[in-house]
Amino acid sequence: MSNKVEQSNRLRTKSSQPIWLKLKRNNKNQMRKTGASTYFFFIPAIICVLAILVYPIGKTLYLSFTDSEGLLPPVFIGLQNYQNFLVDPILRATLTNVLIWTVATLVLPVFIGLIIATVVSGVKGSAIYRMIFLLPYVLSGVAVGALWFNIFETEGLLNKFLVSIGLEGFVNSWLLYYPQNTISMIIAATWASTGLVVVLFTVGIQNVPLQTVEAATIDGANSWVLFWKIIWPQLKYIRAVVIGTSLANSLRTFDIVWVMTGGGPARNSETLAVTMYREAFLLNRYGYGSAIAVFLMVLVVAVSVLSLRGGLKKEATL
């Protein structure tokens, strides 16, 4: 690598060259050209993405301006669906829950994942520890759903455990009432997704040059200084991935809520995606459901743009 740097320096300082050399050099600077071949590299990705995205987004946008329901032909009604959604009594609950899920996901899996990734990277047996935290992510949804349902249900394992250690007073119907059902589901979701965060941060931590770490350790830095001054800055790019992805996913929380509580009781634990699903899929109100979907999408895009712009200020790309 150092040879190459020397080489490039040598090449840059040589200004008076025979013309044929200069021409040869220009031919070699193939990468500098932003020609068609540059775009060739991301054409496969673009094609796949557009092939899948264009029609669904377009259709959803279109339907959101209609009263499409069930098998009936859609009739254009302009912004009616959006207006109805803004005065829908469920709006407050559903937005509150989305906020709760987003904050909880940022605090719990991301924070805990970071700590685990850092601590695990520096100890023996890191592979085993990482595997332990990854196992929940590997399990199929049916297993995870059945498992946590059986843990939290009234006749379930958590209550049995509480009774066995003499804490009968704490026995509760964890899934049947709000807000404990949301808290229970957040616990299950944290369990399932922290492993992912651990792996992502591990990928970032690996980039920290070993010499830097060794030098700092020899200088007497303890773990805290090591983390804050050396590791944390290096995690800049991975951090953006973790936070960006967590935000996008938590705003769209659906599966765990739908499976464990169906958004209940009395629709108290519904998130935006659940509300959308309920209207579109359960009640077949495709027009209204599409409007909620568009609303959700705009929210996710806005939050993503804000968070990514903030996190990568130095990056000229955005």
Partner: peptide, 10 residues
């Protein structure tokens, strides 16, 4: 953008 779309919409 695909990462931002609620999958049910697709």
């Amino acid at each position: 953008a695909v990462n931002l779309v609620p999958y049910q919409m697709l």
